[in-house]
Amino acid sequence: MRHLKTVLGLVLTAVMLFPVYWMINVSFTRDTAMRKSPPDLLPLDGTLDGYRDVLDQQLPYLGTSLVVGLGTVALTLLLAAPAAYSLAKLRPRGGGVLSFVLLIAQMIPGIIMAMGFYAIFLSTGVLNTVPGLIVADSTLAVPFAVLILTTFMSGIPEELLQAARVDGAGVVRTFVSIVLPVSRNSLITVSLFAFLWAWSDFIFASTLDQGGDHQPITLGIYHYIGNNNQEWNAIMATAVVASIPATVLLVIAQRYVAAGVTAGAVKD
């Protein structure tokens, strides 16, 4: 009975992950075999041409995405950690209203933000720049980060902060040398999600960075699809490479991911 469930579980997982397998399979398929009917289920006579194309053409896109992702993480942490500390431990008057606003902010459709940003970026000259994209992408993560970190920091025992205060530490000192180290895990969770969302973002990239010199990998794939020659092994190879952060995140930080989802994780 136990084994039966495992077998069934394996079958279900295989069905669920079939599209992922198919992406990998197609990424190794030769151009000549691409239009074959029925398609090859295994890339036995495979090719690395798709990945060669990635190396030739997509590295700048990947680099931009890395910079945008890291920048978004830095900006998000810088803004969210102090705010969460305040909401969790310093009892600001009006903090409840702010939390409510953050909750609502998460629900604003990206297309609306994009259009507003477009108007602002155009008149301030930030359109098609990497910093502009970082700022826009950070709006995907900041409200989530504040709310999650607040929840985690609320759980820090009051005695710990009291002890620091008795030792003469001020609010800032307590934050830097007690609260931040203790919240390490939740900071990692938030960073992972912020990076992943910035890395995966398509809507801001396609509206605010369409004509930029440095474009992220999501646009790299999008341009590929738009091209008429339709080299699907190259497209799927890029897709496989673009999935690496998600995979790394799942392998290294699986328990953080589950924690993030159940704590009300959001995704566009």
Binding site: M23, A242, K267
Partner: peptide
Amino acid sequence: ALFLVPWLLPLIVSAST
């Protein structure tokens, strides 16, 4: 954990696949 994969992939990856 593997079931989380579709949710973590960039949407452009899923959509083009």
